[in-house]
Design a protein around this nucleic acid. Sequence first.
DNA 1: AAAAAGTTCAAACGAGTGTTTGAAACAAGC
DNA 2: GCTTGTTTCAAACACTCGTTTGAACTTTTT
Lengths: 262, 262
Amino acid sequence: MSQPVVRRLPVEVVSSSTGAIPATIAISVVGKLTDKPADAGDTKRRILDAAEELFMEHGFEATSLRLITTAAGVNLAAANYHFGSKEELFQAVFTRRLDPMNNDRMALLAAYEAAAGGEPLTCERIISAMFIPALKLARDHEQGGKNFLRLLGRAYADPAPFIREFLSRQYAEMIGRFRAAFGEALPRLPREEVSWRLHFVMGALSYTLAGSDGLKLISQIQPEDVDNDELLLKRLAPFLAAGLRAPVGTAQDQQQWFSESD
Amino acid sequence: MSQPVVRRLPVEVVSSSTGAIPATIAISVVGKLTDKPADAGDTKRRILDAAEELFMEHGFEATSLRLITTAAGVNLAAANYHFGSKEELFQAVFTRRLDPMNNDRMALLAAYEAAAGGEPLTCERIISAMFIPALKLARDHEQGGKNFLRLLGRAYADPAPFIREFLSRQYAEMIGRFRAAFGEALPRLPREEVSWRLHFVMGALSYTLAGSDGLKLISQIQPEDVDNDELLLKRLAPFLAAGLRAPVGTAQDQQQWFSESD
DNA sequence: AAAAAGTTCAAACGAGTGTTTGAAACAAGC
DNA sequence: GCTTGTTTCAAACACTCGTTTGAACTTTTT
């Protein structure tokens, strides 16, 4: 490949201690991930960026370390040197963005609760505390953030045990806080039903963020709306809020629903 | 492994043309999939059964043909001989059960519409036309059916292009029929909104059927309920029906929801 | 009974995998 | 300047992967 065109310049000139971010950074921003080395010292970040995109695109098993390191323009061994193993690299991709996002979610929920002064929050308010940090992530890092949300949605459905256990740990605290909030917002709903509906909400959110391209086309959704995460979540939120407030189906209701006879 | 303990008996004795199913079959029913050869002629079915379970458990990429054929008690080359390639085997696992299920769904919807005699159906009726065939599948083949539903839910989120294109083709007709039905059931809802909400319904259904074990535990759901698909869908259906009937969020609503200020 | 078609088998093929290694290149401390 | 400690590099290691092959076996047809 055309990888090591200019491997390493004599950099004595640039060694001025705390330098303003050098030109190499700008180059690495302009060029796509699949391009040249650019060697700005931040090999770890380059690997994480490439891994984020490629794991999203092909999944964990189908993405090789050679593919990642080539796309990042670094040596193959760098991945194991910096992260230890492929699994640890995968987890590092998540913790980099998932931890801040979930902390944002809990902080926003706490701010809403403080502002409400003891009054229970509305479902819409709680849902927005889950969505806004995701939206922020989707917008902040213009490309990387969106990729990460799609990766996250897909990881939810991944059967690999280490992925499931890892996500469970990452989400445990946040889920607990939001279940409590929904429980107070819906005092007449049995606690068990609250757990189920929170599960449905998380599922719909992650599934929607995963962006199943092909199935969207089938649903006759406008192509220009497919990648508009803000619009997407604004359509999903009313749907979920109404579902959360739905009356619990009685035994007779269910009997009626599921009887095949008219 | 303990695979070929007795490879092939001198079978001249048994060559009595159409033999009653030999004892080896009984063994293969008693023993789990991971057991002995049993060679009952139905190599294809044995491979499909093992593939269904293992694809569900480990995903497409992480499941090797050697794992499948060993579990099925057949020779490695049998997979390629009967199905051509690993991808075609994967698709065969789906078509075996997905085609009948989707046909059942459309037939049930048509029966409901005929019984209603021109009147539009309720959302609950349409949802039950989607759910009942899935429930039937979960119950009919006691183990295989449930495995397949979980496999299906996970395949929805798989990034592999050939899986996405395959599922798009499999679902195209059914989705079209149900979108039309929901459009008539919700005449005041804009058509574009109907498409989105159908997308949400499909997502919630497949995600729920995928059964994300670890995350369920986090949600504090009773362990004995986790594998009860009937109970699960009876909780999901009211949630979705209410979401489908939710009023479309106005611009002001959304502004209010997503403003961080109180 | 002979021939044809269908199926199973052990063995191998070439390619790709995650990971390790030891030397080379670099940066920082004294 | 020399010596640490860190990072990069090409090459290799030990495997596993999906697929193919050609001979042996079974079943069906003639």
